[in-house]
Computed example of a mutant assay.
Amino acid sequence: MQTFTLKGEFIQMIQLLKVMNWVEHGAMAQWVVEEGLVKYNGEVDLRKRLKVKVGDIVEFDGNKVKII
Rank of each mutant, 00 (worst) to 15 (best):
E24K: 10
V52K: 01
V44N: 07
K51A: 13
H25N: 15
D56N: 04
L50Y: 03
K18V: 13
D45L: 08
I68N: 04
K39P: 00
I14Y: 12
Y40H: 10
D45G: 04
R49I: 05
A29G: 12
V58D: 01
D56S: 02
L17I: 13
N21E: 15
V23W: 05
K7M: 04
V54M: 03
V44D: 04
D45H: 05
G8T: 13
K18L: 15
L17Y: 10
K18D: 12
K66C: 02
E35T: 15
L16P: 02
K18F: 11
K48E: 12
G26C: 12
D61Q: 04
D61W: 01
V33F: 07
V52Y: 00
V44Q: 07
E43M: 10
F10T: 08
L6V: 14
G55K: 04
E43T: 09
G55M: 09
W22E: 11
T5H: 09
K48M: 09
I57N: 02
N41W: 06
V58Y: 01
G36A: 02
G42W: 00
I68E: 05
I11M: 14
I11L: 12
V33Y: 06
F4D: 09
V44S: 04
G55Y: 03
G42D: 10
M28A: 15
N63Q: 09
M13W: 06
K18N: 12
F4A: 07
E43C: 08
T3R: 06
K64L: 04
G26K: 11
A29P: 03
R49W: 04
R47Y: 02
F10G: 05
D45N: 12
V19D: 12
L50K: 11
R47W: 03
Q30D: 11
K39I: 00
L37Y: 03
Q30W: 06
E34I: 13
K18W: 10
D61T: 02
K66M: 08
F10M: 07
Y40G: 01
V32H: 02
Q30T: 14
G62V: 08
D45V: 10
G42P: 00
I68W: 00
T3V: 09
N41L: 05
L16M: 11
M13Y: 05
F60S: 05
V32I: 15
L46W: 02
N41G: 11
R47P: 00
V52C: 05
V38C: 07
K18A: 15
E24Y: 08
M1E: 10
D45K: 08
N41S: 01
E24D: 15
E35R: 12
W31K: 10
D45Y: 00
V32C: 06
I68Q: 03
V52D: 03
H25Y: 10
E43N: 10
M13I: 05
L17S: 08
A27N: 15
G36R: 07
K48D: 10
G26V: 15
N63G: 00
R49Y: 13
E43F: 00
